[in-house]
């Protein structure tokens, strides 16, 4: 039940993009078509899960015992960057089909603040390892959900009579605002 609530909270109530404003750049950059959105979402779920599982032990085993908590940022980003690089090479060699599906998006993820953000958040919230990984995966799912929804809306923009000055990013932002409004309602239900 605990985990269920955790997942619901991470996917809907505290949606990483629409409520916590993390990962907005890729949210706008890769949401022009649903295919791209799905690819990006898959890659994000994968990388968040991996990076949380990797940074948690480092925090607990190295940083905290030695009192080096202030190095969290630099260590985490190092680990995530190396991880992404490693995963890219790994997939390219051993799982070419998966690489073709996700490879394009992997380099983007290093600078996706949703990844670093959730790695830091699980430490802030003080979750255990299993809980952290579940939270990480659920966060990725929330990101994917938001991305897929907005991309399917944006696909329809092509044929909508949008004023010229709103075309492109402005209308996408306003749409995201309205979606965010909808997601805020989950928060209202939860409280």
């Amino acid at each position: 039940m605990d985990y269920f609530l955790l997942v619901i909270s991470a996917v809907f109530i505290n949606n990483i993009v629409l409520v916590q404003y993390l990962g907005t750049c890729p949210f706008l950059g890769t949401s022009k078509s649903t295919d791209v959105a799905l690819g990006m979402g898959g890659a994000v779920i994968f990388v968040i899960g991996m990076s949380v599982a990797l940074t948690w032990p480092i925090q607990k085993a190295i940083l905290e015992p030695f009192g080096l908590g202030y190095l969290q940022t630099i260590v985490f980003i190092l680990v995530i960057a190396s991880l992404v690089q490693f995963v890219e090479m790994f997939l390219k060699k051993l799982l070419p089909p998966l690489y073709r599906a996700l490879g394009l998006y992997l380099p983007l993820i290093t600078t996706n603040c949703a990844v670093l953000g959730s790695a830091i958040l699980v430490q802030k919230n003080g979750y255990g390892l299993a809980k952290s990984v579940v939270f990480g995966l659920a966060t990725g799912v929330g990101f994917t959900l938001a991305l897929v929804i907005i991309s399917s809306i944006r696909e329809r923009f092509d044929i909508s009579p949008i004023p010229q000055v709103f075309r492109g990013v402005p209308i996408a932002l306003i749409t995201a605002g309205l979606m965010s409004l909808a997601f805020l309602a989950f928060k209202g239900m939860a409280s």
């Binding site: 404003y21 932002l173 605002g177 965010s180 409004l181 805020l184």
Partner: peptide, 9 residues
């Protein structure tokens, strides 16, 4: 959050 998106848009 919604205000942020809409204002920026």
């Amino acid at each position: 959050a919604p205000g942020a998106f809409i204002c920026l848009g």
